[in-house]
């Protein structure tokens, strides 16, 4: 498990170390003011970590295969507690990874308020919940790692490109901006950036929370439904 946590952190850390420096040299616009680059980039990396919970199914599929999940389904516990238990496990390691990332970011010059960061972490947990639940839905449906891998690959890139994680969407042409508004994670990224900047009253903050709460609830509902129809 510790190895898994470390591997999960590698991608965002590499982005911080090997990609973020590029932004410094193209910065200076109103969208990317020179002093704000770390504050703008780190929230996106936190969202990436949450989205990476799409990989959760890779440890769930073997547990379906060994009949362990069926054993839990026959026990007198609700489908929701079963699911939330698994999600909690994922979110704990997600939180741990996020804290390590934040510590590294502080060393790289991050300046953000404690409240804003704490609220962002709640947002990230909601993303983690959504993605873990979705990953379980895919796992239960496909029942094999290859199917899950291709689904994850298909979802991952558009989610990332359409949420302005690498560069703010405000740089995009209008059609791309419109497309981004259909991506729930765009709201999460923008909300986290506003929170890091201490702009708690911006509309995007409550919009981000609303969208992610709805997404998490819907994903958990779908996962419970798949469990109910699952024949082992």
């Amino acid at each position: 498990m510790p190895l898994w946590i470390i591997l999960g952190m590698m991608q965002p850390i590499l982005y911080l170390l090997l990609y973020m420096p590029l932004l410094k040299n193209i910065g200076g616009t109103s969208v990317l003011p020179v002093g704000q680059i770390v504050q703008i980039f780190v929230p996106g990396m936190l969202v990436i970590m949450g989205v990476s919970c799409l990989f959760a199914g890779f440890s769930f599929i073997p547990e379906i295969r060994t009949g362990f999940i069926t054993r839990l389904l026959v026990a007198p516990i609700s489908r929701y507690s079963l699911l939330l238990g698994y999600i909690l496990e994922q979110c704990c390691s997600l939180l741990l990874q996020a804290i390590v990332l934040l510590v590294i970011s502080l060393l790289l010059g991050l300046k953000a308020g404690v409240l804003g960061v704490a609220l962002s972490l709640i947002l990230i947990i909601l993303i983690g919940t959504t993605m873990t639940a979705l990953s379980y839905v895919i796992s239960i449906t496909t029942r094999n790692e290859d199917g899950l891998a291709s689904m994850v690959n298909t979802l991952y890139l558009p989610i990332m490109l359409l949420s302005g994680i690498m560069l703010p969407i405000s740089l995009a042409p209008d059609w791309l901006k419109t497309a981004a508004h259909f991506n729930p994670f765009y709201y999460a990224v923008e909300a986290a950036r506003a929170l890091f900047a201490g702009n708690f009253s911006e509309a995007i903050v409550w919009q981000g929370f609303l969208v992610m709460i709805a997404a998490a609830a819907f994903a958990v509902y779908l996962a419970a439904k798949s469990l109910r129809k699952m024949s082992a």
């Binding site: 547990e63 060994t66 069926t70 054993r71 082992a232």
Partner: peptide, 29 residues
């Protein structure tokens, strides 16, 4: 569910831990 037991074809033991932990979890469930 409270009053039945089920052993599926696959068994259902968690392979990554030992018998003792599996049994304790089962009783706790």
């Amino acid at each position: 569910r409270q009053h039945i037991g089920y052993v599926s074809q696959a068994g259902g033991a968690d392979g990554m831990t030992d018998a003792l932990q599996n049994l304790i979890l089962q009783a706790r469930l």
